[in-house]
Simulated assay, not measured.
Amino acid sequence: MLEFHLGNIIFQLVVFLILMVLVSKLAARPVLGMMKKRQDYIDEQLKSAEESQKQAQELLEQQRAELKRTREESSQIIEAEKKRAEAQATEIINVAKDRAERLINEAKDEIETERVKAVATLRDEVAHLSLLLASKVLEKEVDRKAHEKAIDDFVKQVGESL
């Protein structure tokens, strides 16, 4: 059966304690040191990954804000260019209207000048013809039929010269 001997138990206990001290000094501390280093490395990698993710998120937000700002700027530029083009079109139309008005006024002035010249020429012609008629009338004695004939001839001459 089982017998317990005090000497064997103490010897085994001393050997066990010596073995524990050797294992803890030679094996456990380096293993625990390696595990600590590994844990620190993993923690550092997780922290680095979190920071990278945070930076990526911030960069994404910055890019979205920049894209929004760029879209707003492009909309403003397009709107400004539309207004400028409309203003330029209005200016071109106004310049064309002014030029057309000026040309019309110049044409009216020229027509009026030509009309005045024509009236002056007609007056001169009528005066000349009146003088001719008067000289012909004075040269001969006029009776009523000759007088009417002279007037008709005069009107025909005036009509032909116009």
Rank of each mutant, 00 (worst) to 15 (best):
M1I: 06
E3A: 04
F4Q: 11
H5P: 00
L6H: 13
L6A: 13
N8C: 10
F11T: 14
Q12Y: 15
L13F: 07
F16H: 14
L17S: 10
M20P: 01
M20R: 12
V21D: 02
V23E: 03
V23P: 01
V31Y: 11
L32Q: 11
G33E: 15
M34R: 12
M34F: 11
K37S: 08
D40C: 06
Y41P: 00
K47F: 03
E50K: 01
Q53C: 06
Q53R: 10
Q55M: 05
E58W: 07
L60W: 07
E61L: 08
Q62P: 00
E66P: 00
L67D: 06
L67M: 08
R71G: 03
E72Y: 02
E73T: 06
I78N: 06
E79G: 12
E79Q: 14
E81I: 04
E81N: 03
E81Y: 01
K82L: 07
K82I: 04
K83H: 05
K83W: 07
E86R: 08
A87T: 11
T90C: 00
A96G: 01
K97R: 15
D98K: 15
E101V: 01
R102D: 01
I104H: 14
N105V: 10
K108F: 07
E110N: 14
T113K: 12
R115K: 14
K117A: 11
K117F: 05
T121H: 11
R123T: 08
D124I: 10
A127M: 15
L133N: 10
V137W: 09
L138Q: 13
K140A: 03
V142E: 05
D143H: 04
K145C: 02
E148R: 00
K149C: 04
A150Y: 03
A150M: 07
D152N: 12
D153S: 02
F154H: 04
K156A: 11
Q157N: 10
V158M: 14
G159C: 02
